[in-house]
Design a protein around this nucleic acid. Structure first.
Length: 553
RNA sequence: UGGGUUAUGGUGUAACGGUAGCACUACAGAUUUUGGUUCUGUCUGUCUAGGUUCGAAUCCUAGUAACCCAACCA
């Protein structure tokens, strides 16, 4: 019974740093760019960064990496904050890279003074051409040897708006033949006469990621700056700037971002789905965004469980979305209120039942005795699920069939006596009889049936709408599939059933509650609901071993 | 053809020179008034080839494969 959970590589680093006394507390940061909604990939980063400081003591800052005014907006700032809080985390300081623009400018001036940065008049194309390729060294810019004084003067003029966008840039002077492309005189500042969501029109030059991120980490005394693997080559530059500036040495550590099967995670692709109306918006429940998962009914605990469960490492991966669904079910099973809803109704008449309503008691959640009981109206005319009847049942079919008996959950055992069909031969109704002595909780019939069905009383049924969701794409590894990713969009990812029949208790459904429509899946009320029509999202289906069995046959 | 990162069952992740473990999935069974839940059991793995060692997933050598880097994006 060893409770020792093995550590991931970041925990090992942190424990070593703490043990050696390198740090007394650790400080991390979550650094989103406010140019889109957060998705499952961000959730893993959030759980990691906040989880680490929660575990080891210290804190996590929320820092918006807002160095590109063209793409950023406060709308995103608000949604990002809401998503982090919903996931259950709270940041120490809410910060913005733009808060540091003046400091960053000063850092740039220092580098110019040390002869480590210069203003370049080359065009974007010329710079690209000078850069070389991964296998060929680059060549120096003709502007590389300007004097410190001239660079200082030009950089100030850049700041003062003397130049148009793209006319000049500030570059670090490192080594145009460096094997790491990022060290070949990387850009530090570019000119953008654009309105910034926080600094307004104060600036017309903006720092690049590489000249903002590490310095921001340093300013905040971030001890462990955790990012994804594609930034590994940036680390050399990250360290270089910090070393040349002689500022607090934050360190960058990289992990492999998590990929999920049957979906896409890049902001660019998600934005395309939204813009091209393949989905209804960022929070369309099919999306892998946090806002979509919330709307769909996922519990934040499930997402945290998932992030813990998949761990963190440095190898490429494609996590089965079924694993996420497992954690979603696991949590929901414990809290969801059970309700009965018939999707595809088949009317049955209990011929020996009086023309009256009997209210039967049933539990709200067998997993939670505290959830209590409710009553359901049982009457002569009921709906059952059409798929719960077969005229010619296969072996081991425990549901209703001519002459066969089943229990109606929390009510009585019934037997099917007669099948009524229309002219086309479709089954339209069943005539059944019930066993009065078989009432749930009071069964003296001595009869044991294998099947138990959900049902609703025809006269009391509440029509509701349900929205059923399936995987967003038809292939497991969307990013690796040939051609355009949209070719693999799953046209059946949304199925709307406009009218299904719910037991009356669902009339009082509220958006905070989670429900299990018995034998159907987990559902939650959608915000699109209006007084005349309740709309439910299927969060995730139940495991269905019978369906699997039938598929095999 | 340069630099960097990574290789453990179907998937994800442990094992830090000493019995390849855990979770999901799959399969078989028990329980069940949800064909749900719960419980039990089973199958499947160390990229390849050499070497060091009493002993290698782990150390060494040589390969192989995948991913990242040539945005005035982050």
């Amino acid at each position: 019974m060893s409770e020792e959970k093995s550590l991931n590589f970041l925990e090992e680093i942190i424990e070593a740093d703490l043990a050696s006394g390198k740090y007394k507390q650790i400080i991390t940061r979550f650094p989103p760019e406010p140019n889109g909604y957060l998705h499952m990939g961000h959730a893993t980063s959030i759980c990691l960064n906040f989880g680490l400081t929660k575990k080891y003591g210290g804190y996590t800052n929320l820092r918006f990496d807002d160095t590109n005014p063209i793409t950023e907006d406060t709308e995103y700032v608000e949604s990002i904050k809401a998503d982090i809080r919903w996931l259950g985390f709270e940041w120490k300081h809410e910060l913005y890279a733009s808060d540091y623009f003046e400091t960053l400018y000063g850092f740039a001036v220092q580098l110019i003074q040390k002869g480590l940065a210069y203003v370049d008049d080359s065009t974007s194309e010329q710079i690209a051409a000078q850069k070389g390729t991964p296998t060929q060294p680059g060549i120096n810019s003709p502007y590389r040897n300007r004097s410190v004084e001239e660079n200082l003067q030009l950089f100030e003029a850049m700041r003062n708006g003397k130049y148009q966008d793209g006319e000049k840039v500030l570059r670090a002077k490192i080594d145009m033949a460096h094997p790491n492309m990022l060290m070949r005189d990387p850009l530090m500042y570019r000119i953008k006469h654009a309105h910034h969501h926080r600094t307004g029109d104060k600036w017309c030059i903006y720092p690049m990621y590489d000249f903002a991120h590490g310095q921001s980490d340093s300013i905040e005394n971030i001890t462990h700056s955790i990012c994804t693997l594609e930034f590994v080559p940036h680390r050399e530059l990250y360290d270089w700037f910090i070393a040349q500036l002689g500022i607090y040495p934050s360190h960058q550590y990289e992990f492999a971002r998590r990929n999920l099967s049957y979906t896409v995670m890049s902001k660019r692709k998600l934005l395309q789905l939204v813009n091209e109306k393949l989905v209804a918006g960022w929070d369309d429940p099919r999306m892998p965004t946090i806002s979509a998962m919330r709307r769909r009914g996922y519990l934040p605990e499930s997402i945290r469980d998932f992030c813990d469960g998949i761990g963190v490492a440095k190898r490429e991966n494609l996590v089965d979305i079924g694993l996420l669904e497992f954690y979603v079910r696991e949590r929901l099973n414990k809290v969801a209120l059970r309700r009965m809803v018939v999707f595809d109704p088949l009317k049955i008449t209990i011929t020996n039942f009086a023309d009256e309503t009997e209210w039967v008691e049933t539990e709200n959640n067998p997993e939670d005795p505290n959830a209590g009981l409710r009553t359901m109206p049982f009457s002569r005319e009921l709906y059952i699920e059409r798929e719960d009847f077969m005229e010619q049942p296969p072996k081991k079919y425990f549901r209703l069939a001519p002459g066969q008996m089943v229990r109606l959950k929390s009510a009585y055992i019934i037997q099917c006596n007669e099948v009524i069909k229309d002219a086309a031969g479709n089954v339209t109704e069943l005539k059944c009889t019930y066993l009065p002595e078989s009432k749930s909780g009071n069964d003296t019939s001595g009869i044991h049936v294998k099947g138990t069905l959900h049902w609703v009383s025809v006269a009391h049924a509440v029509p509701i709408e349900v929205r059923l969701y399936d995987r967003l794409f038809t292939v497991e590894n969307v990013d690796a599939a040939e051609g355009n990713f949209k070719d693999y969009f799953n046209p059946k990812s949304l199925e709307v059933m406009h009218t299904v029949f719910a037991e009356p208790a669902l009339q009082n459904a509220n958006i905070a509650e989670r429900y299990q429509f018995m034998r159907k899946g987990y559902f939650c009320l959608d915000k699109d609901s209006y007084p005349q029509k309740l709309i439910f999202n299927r969060t995730v289906g139940l495991k269905d071993t019978w369906a699997k069995e039938m598929k095999k046959a």
